[in-house]
Design a protein around this nucleic acid. Structure first.
Lengths: 259, 259
DNA sequence: CAGTGGTCTAGACCACACT
DNA sequence: GTGTGGTCTAGACCACTGC
């Protein structure tokens, strides 16, 4: 037996044992913590039990728990605060207001620029097209929520976003709800719908706006825009949002750090 | 005394001790390893001494060396290979051919697409403009090398790049040298000039091509392009390259993973 | 087989936050 | 002071590579 399992939670597996699938103890612990996060045992913003407590609970040493938490922290799922504890990461109340927004002013940053003005242009329920369904892992025709909004900085409309959300998890989301909420949209998703976005993929292109896009962003149709297509995932790599953003890049740019 | 220093390499510091500047042992070890990397004691592709040897050399435990190496590995400066050793990361011979290029085909990946065709359009020495000098931390008028090249995929010109390199470190780089070399440009920089690019920042905008750009990329002037302005850094955050790429995004897109 | 990195443990002590 | 995460150590054993 290759694999030590301190808990019965990791059965011999029902999948064909082609790969011996050795996984270190701390990975198993990581998985167990992940389960508690998904199940909502510990909610965004709350603290999780101390390393000592978790070590006792899982019957492993503190060092093993520590390594599991280290990885979850570097995945941005947990946040460690020395002397206070380890907390479930949240899109609300974080000093990083826009965790997934990579558009920054050419001079200064989003903080010096002041808060963005938001305007919900449209919000309606409809049936998923084949394309939307594929992106959200739904079936064509399933209920989805479609939202269109504009973000302005210093009065200048800069971002136009169309987004699609699966109807089920977001039942009850309305234009009013979105308009009334102040703070990151992903924070609202967390507190109101229990949906925490964990990671996302973006595909970026240069495009020209169509008629309505040029009007909403107040630019001529000949002004090239950044098209940013994002699929955001919650735990378990479940896609929960498709978002297509159109960014003006005359006084802002999309910033990316490579390493 | 707050700070243990196992070596004399970390003198009491000549900077004003305003901040007590506590740094953990493994961070100091990390710094020492970094110095050896910069000095060329261990070259790209080579293996560094084993954890045990380093522990003996620095008079610390293996665990402390391990943590230092862990961080350097997650910074992509070192690569660990179980059973073999720890190696200095390199842009050559890596399975990741294009570590900094985030443009991918809409279908498949850069591997299925086959190797890119490269064409050096221009390569000349000139004096740095104020803008170029600022980006490369030079003085206006310093010698720089300017290169223009086109990358094509499947015969379709897709990327036009202008790049500027500081004249000093890249003395002897010619169009022939670039044209004859097969493999990533950053690999050539490593082997021929001892310049290893460690990280980079990119600013992305949507733009329309000028006359020469539209000709080289064989698109109308009304076709929006991605403008990708990159500053690449070697060790010590020293900028060593300014590169402005123009990407066609009709059948490719810039991919970015957010987490 | 020996040598390397990878995992796990147990214990000591430090730095930080709150009370 | 107490409790939290953060660092450091020493030793045992596992997994992988290549001789």
């Amino acid at each position: 037996m290759n694999n030590h399992s301190p808990l019965a939670d990791t059965p011999p597996s029902d999948a064909p044992a082609l790969t011996p699938a050795f996984s270190p103890l701390y990975q198993q612990i990581k998985g167990l913590i992940l389960q508690s996060l998904q199940s909502g045992e510990w909610k965004p913003g709350e603290s999780i039990p101390s390393e000592m407590e978790l070590a006792a609970r899982y019957r492993v040493s503190q060092g093993t728990v520590r390594k599991a938490i280290d990885e979850l922290a570097s995945d941005n799922l947990l946040v460690r605060r020395q002397g206070k504890g380890t907390f479930v990461a949240t899109h609300a109340e974080q000093h990083v207001q826009y965790r997934f927004l990579k558009l920054v002013p050419d001079q200064g940053d989003l903080n010096t620029e002041g808060p963005a003005q938001r305007e919900i242009v449209d919000c309606k329920r409809l049936r998923a097209s084949a394309e939307i369904a594929r992106a959200l892992a739904l079936r064509t025709g399933d209920a989805v929520l479609q939202v269109r909004r504009v973000l302005s900085f210093g009065g200048v409309p800069t971002i136009l976003e169309d987004l699609w959300l699966p109807g089920g998890p977001f039942k009850g989301l309305t234009a009013e709800r979105l308009a009334d909420y102040h703070g990151p949209m992903y924070a609202l998703f967390e507190t109101e719908f229990g949906v925490r976005m964990v990671r996302a993929d973006e595909k970026i292109r240069a495009v020209l706006p169509d008629e309505s896009q040029s009007e909403l962003l107040q630019v001529p149709r000949s002004t090239p825009l950044l098209s940013v297509e994002r699929v955001a995932y919650t735990y378990n790599d479940t896609p929960m949002e498709l978002r297509r953003g159109f960014y003006r890049t005359d006084s802002h740019h999309y910033h990316n750090a490579l390493s």
